[in-house]
């Protein structure tokens, strides 16, 4: 059974899925990665977070997945201040978030089916329900016929689809994609973005971190632009232009 973030947060239906309140984070003294960042992302939104390398995008994602903690300010996910999560509760919290990475991060020794099923094993889902759920997730990403293939037998686009299926199988309320098309050609990029739009249409909030201008400009979604650890613009149906 997937972790119900909203239930855990006390059913704060109106609360934003993501809310940053004056968040700052430094890895080294006097070198802030994030400076006093505040923003909200509501349920069902599709948001791009853009910016050059070192602008603070990855730090933002790591704060949401609770790989790191803010030095100042608060991060609320579905109404819950995740800075106050006990270490033992982090794993269960993460089950409500699907994550997709630029380098796919599939387990090379497992085939497509096993990679997706692995996400279910990890949350100790009932064994007899796993095959059915994996089949559904693979159908959504269009890889039902590649179940037995291993990652090194797949194209980059196909590997990213497997990663999306793995991120979706636990029914997350939030899908984070960190440069999901960074290693893909334009055709595969379009396919993956279509897939993420489909996931968003099904009700999942989607946050995509990228610096692919063409893709951002073509999709006309909300765009939060970051520069040197700060939000410099936040526009619905925005674009990503050279300054």
């Amino acid at each position: 059974m997937a972790y119900d973030v909203e239930k855990d947060a006390g059913r704060k239906i109106d609360a934003p899925v993501i809310m940053f309140e004056n968040v700052s984070k430094s890895y080294q003294k006097n070198m802030p990665a994030l400076k006093n960042v505040s923003f909200e992302i509501r349920k069902g939104e599709f948001v791009f977070i853009v910016g050059a390398s070192g602008s603070g995008k990855s730090t933002l994602i790591k704060l949401i997945t609770r790989e790191i903690k803010a030095n100042k300010g608060k991060v609320f996910i579905n109404g819950r201040d995740i800075g106050r999560l006990f270490r033992g509760k982090i794993a269960r919290y993460r089950r409500g978030i699907g994550v997709v990475f630029q380098d796919f991060r599939l387990l090379p020794d497992l085939n497509v089916y096993e990679n997706v099923a692995f996400a279910q094993r990890v949350i100790e889902a009932p064994a007899k329900e796993i095959p059915n759920r994996v089949a559904k997730a693979l159908a959504i990403v269009g890889l039902s016929d590649k179940q037995k293939s291993f990652p090194d037998q797949l194209s980059g686009g196909e590997q990213q689809r497997v990663a999306v299926a793995r991120a979706l199988i636990n029914n997350p309320t939030l899908l984070l994609a960190d440069e999901p098309t960074g290693n893909l050609d334009p055709s595969n990029t379009r396919e993956i973005m279509k897939l993420l739009e489909e996931v968003n249409r099904r009700g999942t909030t989607v946050v995509v971190v990228t610096h692919n201008r063409e893709m951002v400009n073509s999709m006309q979604k909300r765009v939060i632009k970051m520069d040197r650890g700060q939000i410099v613009s936040d526009a619905s149906k925005g674009g990503y232009r050279y300054v």
């Binding site: 972790y3 269960r92 991120a167």
Partner: peptide, 16 residues
């Protein structure tokens, strides 16, 4: 390490 970090990001407990 890589495998473990993936496991933890998709919600594996330390026990698992």
């Amino acid at each position: 390490r890589e495998e473990i970090s993936i496991m933890k990001l998709i919600g594996a407990t330390d026990y698992f």
